[in-house]
Nucleic acid binder design. Structure first.
Lengths: 107, 107
DNA sequence: ACACAATACATTGTATAACGATGTATTAAA
DNA sequence: TTTAATACATCGTTATACAATGTATTGTGT
């Protein structure tokens, strides 16, 4: 039943929801990029591409909503750990308020 | 406080929410395009451009989610009245279910 | 020993859809 | 008689997810 339409709609929804999910995730837990992809899958049940998440994290950094630090590993590639900033928390609250207002209108 | 970021986010959210709002609106009321813009403003409190709504209605038509008929007016330009199809109602229900699932995850 | 998958970062080209501007036409108001 | 409102529509720009690709390291299977 209109599977392609619904799949496309889902992609469009992500353009709005994804920053929200990432900001919330980082409020409960410090994460690195690759880990965020896995958390989004297990916690929110959504699949996100690497080509989506890395540019998104860079955008949120530029906006001052996140901070990050490189952490060397005993073995393997270093990880870039992200944390949410004070401003990030405020923006998250604003976004959440906005979206809940919109959803209220759905009957 | 990050007004530009939030405004941009709002635009991205619309890409997901707008079809949902239009489908719901047409479940309660038969509308023509220009009227939908006004209803979205008064009922949902969102501003939508003409350059957004007309292409959207055309897309929803192509998907078979809407039907339309031209209605001549006693005076002025004819109106294209839209109604939701059976398939449109089913797709709306699916979308609503999906979005509510997503919103539940917001803390 | 060697291929392959998983981890972990990132960039590039394509597609979708909202926005702003513009266009056509009709009617009412200043 | 010009401007605003109504009512349709299209076009170029922009933002962002996706798929593909790239680099590098480590673990696993044969």
């Amino acid at each position: 039943m209109k599977q392609e339409f619904l799949k496309n709609w889902d992609t469009q929804m992500k353009k709005g929801l994804l920053p929200l999910f990432v900001l919330q995730l980082l409020q409960t837990k410090e994460c690195y990029g690759y880990e965020i992809i896995q958390e989004l899958k297990s916690v929110f049940g959504i699949d996100v591409n690497e080509g989506t998440i890395y540019p998104l994290l860079i955008r949120l950094m530029k906006e001052g909503l996140l901070q990050h630090q490189w952490v060397e590993q005993a073995s393997g590639i270093p990880r870039k750990y992200y944390t949410i900033s004070t401003e990030g928390k405020a923006v998250y609250a604003e976004m959440k308020k906005n979206i809940e207002l919109n959803i209220q209108n759905l009957k």
